[in-house]
């Protein structure tokens, strides 16, 4: 336990050093376009990781994760634009705002399960967008413009690394195992006297927090945000990434996020077929390999010769 914790924090320090080294010594000489794609990949990875905690590890089907990204993006954008809060601090506060949103949505709706939960979260996503569209202070349907462009390569991947370490540690903790148990057999877990609603709400709130952070990073990416960016399509995109990568794997969805974000850039000429391709792959995947690319395995398992104990 102690050893794995030290490895975790060691990796964190090394990772941070590497990210900022790249930020200061590589990025200034890199093509702007390439950097922007890398940043978008990082943001999508963070959002997908947030959903992966809810959908992949806890088995709760949220179809409204873009709504939490919207809360994060708009609250951090508002703080930075009208109150002069530094953008990255605003992003953090935006994450907390999204977490509160997650609590508000999660508390009542997590009593439901499966398809009903999917539709309720979808509904909340819709309501959040409608409210933003009708709020003058948030720029209504036109969106918020003139935001500081503070989302750099370094910050994006710092947040991603923090999120990754957090999720990894959570999953390996007793709390994380409880979440996975809820996913695998909720009735069995409840019969052990565990409050499954509480466990699900916790996962939901944490998932919303990291989605909010991803939203904040989007807010400070292109100096403007609009409600349409956080619609149902975005939520579906995130679900597709998690499902394709593998529900119950951490690295699988991250790989899927990277590939599916980069793919349309590579295949510019067929950009209009992007959504057709997504949906087609989604169906084929469900029919042929419903557990996703990685299933519940991790990237590292593919390289280590040591057989892992099932479920760890």
């Amino acid at each position: 336990m102690l050893r794995s914790a030290i490895v975790g924090y060691g990796a964190l320090v090394v990772g941070l050093a590497a990210i900022w080294a790249v930020h200061y010594f590589v990025i200034p000489w890199t093509d702007v376009y390439f950097t922007s794609v890398a940043i978008r990949i990082g943001i999508n990875m963070l959002a997908v990781m947030a959903l992966s905690l809810v959908l992949g590890f806890t088995g709760q089907f949220s179809l409204g994760h873009a709504g939490f990204m919207a809360i994060g993006a708009y609250s951090s954008g508002y703080l930075a634009l009208h109150m002069g809060v530094p953008p990255m601090l605003a992003t953090l506060i935006g994450g907390f705002a999204a977490a509160i949103g997650g609590l508000t949505v999660g508390l009542p709706s997590l009593r439901l399960s499966g398809d009903y939960l999917a539709v309720v979260t979808l509904g909340f996503n819709g309501i959040i967008i409608v409210v933003i569209q009708n709020t003058k202070a948030l720029g209504a349907a036109l969106g918020m413009i003139g935001l500081p462009q503070a989302t750099s390569f370094g910050w994006t991947f710092t947040w991603l690394l923090l999120g990754g370490v957090f999720l990894r540690n959570l999953i390996r903790s007793p709390h994380g195992r409880m979440l996975m148990a809820v996913r695998d057999n909720e009735i069995a877990v409840r019969s052990l006297g565990i409050d499954t609603t509480r466990a699900k709400v916790t996962a939901f709130v944490l998932g919303a927090f990291w989605a909010g952070i991803a939203g904040g990073l989007i807010a400070f990416l292109n100096a403007s945000i609009s409600p349409a960016q956080f619609s149902y399509d975005r939520s579906i995109e995130l679900v597709a990434m998690v499902v394709l990568g593998g529900t119950g794997s951490m690295s699988g969805p991250l790989i899927a996020a990277a590939v599916l974000t980069a793919l349309p850039e590579v295949l510019r000429p067929i950009a209009q077929y992007r959504m057709v391709l997504y949906s087609f792959v989604l169906i084929v995947m469900m029919l042929a390999r419903p557990q996703g690319l990685m299933g519940s395995r991790e990237l590292i398992d593919l390289f280590s010769r040591r057989k892992k104990v099932a479920g760890v």
């Binding site: 398809d115 999917a118 679900v239 077929y273 029919l287």
Partner: peptide, 28 residues
């Protein structure tokens, strides 16, 4: 039909996939 014995989450995701596919094919 091929997913009749599958988990409900998988069928639901397939249904969403079919919906997106038709919508985007319609757009094209």
């Amino acid at each position: 039909r091929p997913l009749r014995k599958s988990t409900r989450l998988n069928i639901l995701i397939t249904a969403i996939g079919v919906s997106l596919l038709l919508q985007n094919l319609g757009l094209l």
